[in-house]
Nucleic acid binder design. Sequence first.
DNA 1: CGCTAAGCAGTATTTTATATACATGTTAAA
DNA 2: TTTAACATGTATATAAAATACTGCTTAGCG
Lengths: 148, 148
Amino acid sequence: MHLTRYTDYALRVLIFLAVKGDERATIHEIAESFGVSRNHLMKVVQDLSHRGYITTIRGKHGGLLLSRAPEEISLGGLVRDTEHELGLVECLRDGNDCIITPACRLKPIFNEALEAFLAVLDRYTLADMLGPRQPQLARLMQIAISPA
Amino acid sequence: MHLTRYTDYALRVLIFLAVKGDERATIHEIAESFGVSRNHLMKVVQDLSHRGYITTIRGKHGGLLLSRAPEEISLGGLVRDTEHELGLVECLRDGNDCIITPACRLKPIFNEALEAFLAVLDRYTLADMLGPRQPQLARLMQIAISPA
DNA sequence: CGCTAAGCAGTATTTTATATACATGTTAAA
DNA sequence: TTTAACATGTATATAAAATACTGCTTAGCG
Ligand code: SF4
Ligand code: SF4
């Protein structure tokens, strides 16, 4: 059972932007910092932009900014938004041909478990990712802390 | 976020055996019934056997039997046993090189969510898969109900 | 005793999902 | 009008999972 990197990258972008605060960050910069594919990250960013998590600014000196306060960004919501395929087993996905589907009691149980999983994430926001460790995060991400 | 078919197949095998009750079932028979790979199922079966869920009998007229009562088989335990990779994100798996790992607060949160997920499954057993729908399951699996 | 039907074990291939790369376009500041 | 950024679509590569293949072992039956 894995979350996709796509979802984790979305979280990394949000953490990066939260640490950067008011300053714009570029996709290039974030990709470099984490050592991941710039192109892939660009898709994540577009998704986050379309869903209203971040604001993108084109053109020279463009970049990205959070469009909501970190306290307003729920982890559960983000995972629901970015982890496209939350169907844990075959019968919850397209093209199911498990023969016992009509009588199987597992399906609702897995859904219940998934809800419990997401409910935990719903209790946290992006703000919880920062806290006292924000300076350490900034250092790890090689963000020069702006004198604000 | 997916469970592997491997895990789901393990559940299907256990359900099949539970419905069959005292009668032996062969891997061939189960694979046919679900329309899945006999070879893959064989690996699942061996795993279940090594872990003490089922008893295998070789030779002519051999087959499989549950080695514990359905009430004794916890879904949570089974998923922990068969879903080998429960590391949801990169930093929980081998070969992690996410740079913010030392300061990231997501890791414990994902673990907490995973625990909540499994805790739900821990509340159910194989016996809960049967109940009043057992005859329907038997029909769907094309098990001739033994007059027993 | 030897045939046959079952599970056992290891390896190789195929398929699928995911991630990455590439190519080209658009925007806006300098 | 150049340049640094995001936007979009497609193609390729990688990795995980599922499936297939090959040969072996066990045990009942005649
Ligand atoms: S119906 Fe039951 S056995 Fe079939 S795929 Fe869904 S959960 Fe698995
Ligand atoms: S450390 Fe945080 S960002 Fe990095 S892989 Fe783990 S959860 Fe994701």
